[in-house]
Design a protein around this nucleic acid. Structure first.
Length: 492
RNA sequence: GAGGGUAUAGCUCAGCUGGUAGAGCAGCGGCCUUUUAAGCCGUUGGUCGAAGGUUCGAAUCCUUCUACCCUCACCA
């Protein structure tokens, strides 16, 4: 760093502005690389960061990387002038430069810009981890990669500069969200925004973050979901509303959980969960085509095929198929015995729903590698879902599973205000028994339902997990630019 | 929240059973006008995550702490 400050000083002494205000670039690296014939011998102007430097006495090679890719530069003293070549010697890997020059191919066949003019656009003061790479055929071998996860997450900017694949993951993330948004907009649904700071949290079972508003002198919660607000909008008369929502849950963190995460929620009036299953299937396939160009994908070594139709299996059937036990309407005492037989440890406080949920996630979930809709969950686990039209004790709900992971959650929405009030009361009772994740009663939401909500189906999709799936990333931290970390002791 | 692992130069790592720290790359100084993980010669650089302890002596053994990673628990 000391050396770089000195170079900065020397640049200033040579009357070179190390931080000029702009540079007019005319091409991206990829433009030139992909159409050499058109550019050969022509003058081009590109700008980007120097990622490698091979200096010889009177000529140098370097690689310049911009958002599109990496192109080689050839700087000759005779072309650039002695004075400029001296200035070029003050350049470091990591510096951002703009160059003009003409396009040629070197002896070894690499497309290269022979630089006639170069300008330092931003002098770096910190050394970049130098990552060397070697291209062998279409394989890219990387040496001494910047790989320390802690540093990569804490200094994501460095990670992004140096690790191209990381940049690509986030480009894909944007494409996934973009194609989902297009899909929903093209079907005529309205993208909306609802409060993040809520006086009452609801729409999911989770512990919230709590904050305080000074002027109103009241407690506010960061939303754990936006479900109840979106349904109010359906009451208000919109046929379909959706929101890409940052939600916040004050719970443990691991490779599938970050305290803030993104969920897309969608509500469509006059439809039920069968409609929503069709939509999910079609939407996921549309995204897969748009982003990966294929219904097939590999996730952590597993081959996954999204080609529709996806099987739709009632949850209890899935359990029965896997374990041989039919759990429907079984009393708790019997469920305890079954759990024992399946070697699942349980707690006295567990009700029917909890047993079913546990047995499912223990015995069935890990096997759901190929896409499947698991449907018709126990009522006690789904306080906002409408009762099943034929199966008492169950609700009309489904969860799409891919690669052993739940990718979303949807139901035919409960629009009977009296039933909804009863469900809330049951939650309140749980709460009083010490379940701090049970949902609080939302009087205004009930009032909205009392004004009448059309039959409606709703969906929530965990966007981060979806991105993990499509980009083959094992950890949620690898699909978030800035995953939550403990503060570092900043030393320099 | 519980268990396990990791922490050595800017980056990637080595350092055996305790003897006072090393390599490659980067940096710095030279040589080199088609190189590409450029090469050659020379060279700088580390309170070995932090604090304490055992010892004549600790990067190495012990304790505590901190951060990160993995697994489990809770959850999406």
């Amino acid at each position: 760093m000391q050396a770089r400050r000195e170079k900065l000083q020397r640049l200033r002494e040579a009357n070179v502005d190390p931080y000029p205000h702009s540079f007019t670039r005319k091409q991206l690296a990829a433009d030139i690389l992909s159409d050499f014939d058109a550019y050969e011998g022509k003058e081009v102007a590109v700008a980007g960061r120097l990622m490698s430097l091979r200096r010889m006495g009177k000529a140098s090679f370097a690689h310049l990387e911009d958002s599109s890719g990496r192109i080689q530069l050839y700087i000759r003293r005779d072309t650039v002038g002695e004075q400029n070549y001296e200035i070029f010697k003050l350049v470091d890997i990591g510096d951002i430069v703009g160059v003009t020059g003409s396009v040629l191919k070197t002896r070894t066949g690499e497309i290269t810009i022979e630089v006639s003019e170069f300008r330092i656009l931003s002098k770096t003061l910190r050394p970049l981890p130098v990552v060397k790479e070697k291209v062998e055929g279409d394989k890219r071998l990387v040496f001494d990669a910047f790989a320390d996860k802690e540093q990569r997450y804490r200094q994501r900017y460095v990670d992004l500069i140096v690790n191209r694949e990381v940049r690509e993951v986030f480009v894909k993330r944007s494409k996934i969200i973009g194609s989902m948004r297009n899909y929903l907009l093209s079907r005529g649904y309205l993208e909306v925004e609802t409060p993040i700071l809520q006086p009452l949290y609801g729409g999911a079972t989770a512990r919230p973050f709590t904050t305080h508003h000074n002027t109103l002198d009241m407690t506010l919660y960061l939303r754990i979901a936006n479900e109840l607000y979106l349904k109010r909008l359906i009451v208000g008369g919109y046929d379909g509303v959706f929101e890409f929502a940052k939600d916040f849950r004050n719970e443990g963190m691991d490779r599938f959980h970050n305290p803030e995460f993104t969920m897309m929620e969608l509500y469509v009036a006059y439809e039920d969960y069968h409609f929503m299953m069709d939509l999910v299937e079609d939407m996921f396939c549309t995204i897969a085509k748009a982003v990966n160009g294929s219904y097939q994908l590999t996730f952590q070594g597993k081959e996954i095929d999204l080609t529709p139709p996806w099987p739709r299996i009632p949850l209890l059937e899935a359990i029965e198929k896997e374990t041989g036990f039919d759990l429907y309407e079984k009393p708790v005492e019997e469920l305890r015995k079954i759990a024992d037989e399946l070697h699942i440890s349980w707690d006295k406080s567990w009700g029917q729903g909890k047993f079913i949920d546990e047995i499912f996630s223990e015995k069935v979930e890990p096997k759901l590698i190929q896409p499947v809709f698991i449907t018709d969950h126990p009522l006690s686990l789904s306080p906002l879902a409408k009762k099943h039209r034929d199966k008492p004790g169950l609700v009309e709900r489904f969860e799409p599973f891919i690669a052993g992971k739940e990718m979303g959650n949807a139901f035919t929405e409960l629009n009977d205000p009296i039933d909804q009030r009863e469900r809330f009361m049951a939650q309140v009772a749980l709460r009083e028994m010490g379940d701090d994740e049970a949902q609080p009663l939302d009087e205004d939401f009930l009032r909205a339902l009392e004004y009448g909500m059309p039959p409606t189906t709703g969906l929530g999709v965990g966007i981060d997990r979806l991105v993990m799936l499509f980009t083959d990333q094992a950890s949620i931290r690898d699909v978030l630019f800035f995953p939550q970390m403990r503060p570092e002791q900043y030393r320099d």
